[in-house]
Computed example of a mutant assay.
Amino acid sequence: MLETGSVLPDLELEDTTGRPVRLTDYRGSDNVLLYFMRSVTCPVCAMHVKDLAARAADLAGADVRVLIVVPEGRSEAAAWQAGRDLPFQVVTGRHGSPHAAVGLMRKVFGAVQQSGSLLVDRAGVVRHAHSATVPTGSYDRRGITAAVAALPLADPLP
């Protein structure tokens, strides 16, 4: 997985309508928290998303845009999103697995999908990275909160 201090590569993502989502579009304007779900059928990951949704106002107040990243295709992601009132965009890989692109695949008797989160600042630098193979350990609420509090402030407008 990417480490704190590394620069996030520009992942090729798309939202549930098929529109491209490029992380470089947020550079200079928004911090981005990517929460990588193990799958849309993971009830533990869904609880984590629910907690993030409850914290949406605080995250938005810190100029943090949250993207929920799922490994399934666009139609599965759209069906999952339709059943929830989320204040966040749900995205998937445009070409390949977004999870694999950031190192969230673990080889244990084949490939096991991991879940976790990355907080990326306006400059594209990873400020928090956390992952786990077991979903119950994949959401580091305290670590995310501390990393959000430590984000560099936006440059004031001239």
Rank of each mutant, 00 (worst) to 15 (best):
T16G: 06
T24C: 15
D140L: 06
P158G: 09
P98Q: 10
Q89T: 15
L118G: 15
E72F: 11
P20W: 10
P135G: 14
S138A: 15
G18A: 09
P156L: 14
T17G: 13
R38F: 05
G116H: 03
H48Q: 03
Q81H: 03
P135D: 14
V148H: 12
V125E: 12
G137S: 09
G103C: 05
P71K: 08
A60Q: 03
A147N: 14
P152R: 14
A100F: 05
A78D: 05
L33I: 02
L104E: 13
A54Y: 01
R94M: 09
H48S: 14
F36N: 01
K50E: 13
A147D: 14
R65M: 08
D30Q: 13
V64Y: 02
R84N: 12
L13Y: 06
V49Q: 01
D30C: 04
G5P: 04
F36M: 01
G116D: 11
A154T: 14
S97G: 03
N31L: 04
T16A: 11
R38K: 11
A111N: 10
L13G: 01
L13D: 02
A129V: 10
R27N: 09
M37F: 01
V112M: 15
G137D: 11
L104C: 12
G137T: 03
Y139F: 15
I144A: 12
D51V: 05
P71F: 08
Q113G: 03
A56R: 03
V112S: 13
A123S: 15
F36Q: 02
K50P: 00
C42T: 04
R19G: 09
G73C: 08
F109H: 06
G28F: 02
R122A: 15
L52R: 03
